[in-house]
Nucleic acid binder design. Structure first.
Lengths: 342, 342
DNA sequence: CTGAAAGCGCTTACAG
DNA sequence: CTGAAAGCGCTTACAG
């Protein structure tokens, strides 16, 4: 027999307790806490009782019939420091929508599909994909469940998925112009993982523009992961070649930083005189005086905002069709490339 | 009326469908998929039917009576690049346990409590805290719900929480010895946020050892956030002083990198001759040739592993009491401090 | 606007 | 080991 002062076993506070305390029905409590229609005085009564009892709705139970308030975030590039602030912004903005982030590590998992399978068991309301590649079957699976998916910083070739990204082809062309204008004549491109669409687009644009400008003396090397080490290694390979490049366009900043260090400290090359270097992203490190990296800035903050907006718009209105939002990029001139010859 | 070829509305596959297909009871299906006891042939029958129907258990429903398989990860220091690999490892290891990570951003949220409140609505099975400070009331709340919490890379002053961390007091002493032995006589300490226990411990150990070694000419400055910019700013303040330090112990590497850049590029000081610099963590950047930072390495990988192990042990056996696991740290000598004078 | 009732998909005592 | 039944905490038609 328990008395009111018996605190040993904290009672579970559910809609039932709140309803009783407020002297209303369970449905009323539910409505007051969801979007349901109910009068102002009803809402007040319910909230007062809830406050008193310190009631917290159980989202698992809610998710059973309604939305789970869970957003999946698929991540592969944990080696690229750009993703830490990106994760911060995603989680902050998702929390602002009264939802939470299910962080899914798709880097070690044998396949992205496998990771997703797990996510689907939680009946997420939406999915953000920052992964290198997005298999069509995954998008189809989400579609079948009515889960909107939006790709971040990569365009989706898939039918059903929205995407928020930059024009990577254009970025490649910008890089080509910058190097040619700077008087470099033997440019190289260091790519990301072969599967990375973004990297392939940058490469296409880069080479496309080089050829337009009459430059034939270019080369391409596969860099691998979006990581410092991969950039360092790729640069070593290039600089060991008989036909050394005089400038390198890296598919992202962290690789470019690795490359800069290789050039300077292992090959004693002066940057930008003996080797020009340009990256993409504008991560924090790029602006540090130790690197002073010329780069093409992706407006990540605005992109995250657009991504979250699109996602929640589609969650609210499932009938909406997928959307593609393309952001322009800014060239940020620093010290790793020669000034444009006038 | 639907025919078997009517694929327009994919039927929901639940335990009911699987049970029917396998010709067994719903309870049997549930047992086969959970820890339940059931015969080998029963399990086979159920799995065969499940495979056929592509059945995926609904974790939300399971969580209602059983565990949610959700682990909360509280993060505040999104400006410290050390946390990206740490997040990767946590998410990977949690997924390995057939659970998923609820990433909770506690940096922008007015209070950590508020973020936690949301987490509790999902009835997480356990909580990892990498946040700067951990209010006791938060631990109490978890205790009341039977949710084990373990602090990562910080010791908990709280009763109920486990912790996996390094001996920060000892680290401070190591840094002091290194600077004194290197012939520096005017050391300074750059702290993290005032609330950060780890930083305070490092400071205590550092000063404690300096005094032991007879050094009185030291100073302390509050650095603020664990970020590059905070390290840069704090260093500028120190180097503008009339009584300039000749060496600085930063409470972490990313601040030390900021400090190094300030010293070298803004004040044209040569490191380690005119200014000695030492950090803590051994982040990737610390080993790059651009920084070559002497540091005290925290064995993050092993710490994450220990953290996850402890957490799941406590989830399995709730009667276990909180555990404190202390890791030793290694001094990593690079080029930002003078060699020890022999 | 409000309430009684059925149901979301699973788990877990309770019998057999 | 297996099955029938009650229940987890909420939501949502359906009446009033």
């Amino acid at each position: 027999m328990r008395t009111s002062s018996d605190k040993s076993k904290p009672e579970k506070i559910t809609v039932v307790e709140v309803a009783a305390a407020a002297g209303v029905s369970i449905s009323a409590v539910s409505r007051a806490f969801s979007n349901g229609s109910c009068s102002e005085k009803m809402r007040e009564k319910v909230f007062a009782a809830a406050k008193l009892l310190d009631y917290k709705p159980n989202r698992l139970a809610r998710g059973l019939k309604s939305k789970s308030s869970l957003i999946g975030i698929l991540v592969t590039d944990f080696e690229n420091p750009a993703y830490l602030p990106i994760l911060q912004q995603f989680s902050a903005q998702i929390q602002q929508q009264n939802c939470h982030s299910l962080l899914v590590n798709a880097s070690d998992t044998p396949t992205i599909e496998e990771a997703l399978e797990l996510v689907m068991e939680y009946h997420i309301d939406g999915l953000v994909v920052t992964a290198t590649s997005l298999p069509q079957m995954l998008v189809d699976a989400c579609k079948a469940q009515g889960i909107p998916v939006v790709c971040f910083a990569r365009n989706s070739l898939s039918q059903g998925a929205s995407a928020v990204y930059c024009d990577n082809f254009a970025n490649g062309r910008i890089a080509a112009d910058l190097l040619i204008d700077g008087g470099y004549s033997k440019p190289a491109f260091v790519s990301g993982p072969v599967a990375a669409l973004t990297s392939r687009e940058r490469q296409r644009g880069f080479i496309n523009r080089l050829v337009e400008r009459g430059c034939q003396d270019w080369q391409i090397i596969e860099g691998g992961n979006h990581s410092y080490d991969a950039g360092y290694e790729a640069t070593c390979k290039l600089l060991e070649l008989h036909e050394r490049p005089d400038s390198i366009f890296f598919t992202d900043d962290i690789m470019a930083c690795g490359g800069l260090d290789a050039a300077r400290y292992r090959y004693n090359l002066s940057v930008p005189e003996e080797l020009g270097v340009i990256g993409v992203d504008d991560i924090q490190l790029a602006s540090s005086p130790a690197y002073q990296l010329t780069t093409i800035k992706q407006p990540f903050e605005q992109m995250v905002t657009a991504c979250v907006e699109t996602l929640f718009k589609q969650i609210q209105q499932p009938e909406l069709s997928a959307e593609q939002i393309v952001f322009p990029c800014d060239l940020v001139l620093r010290q790793s490339t020669r000034a444009v010859k006038s």
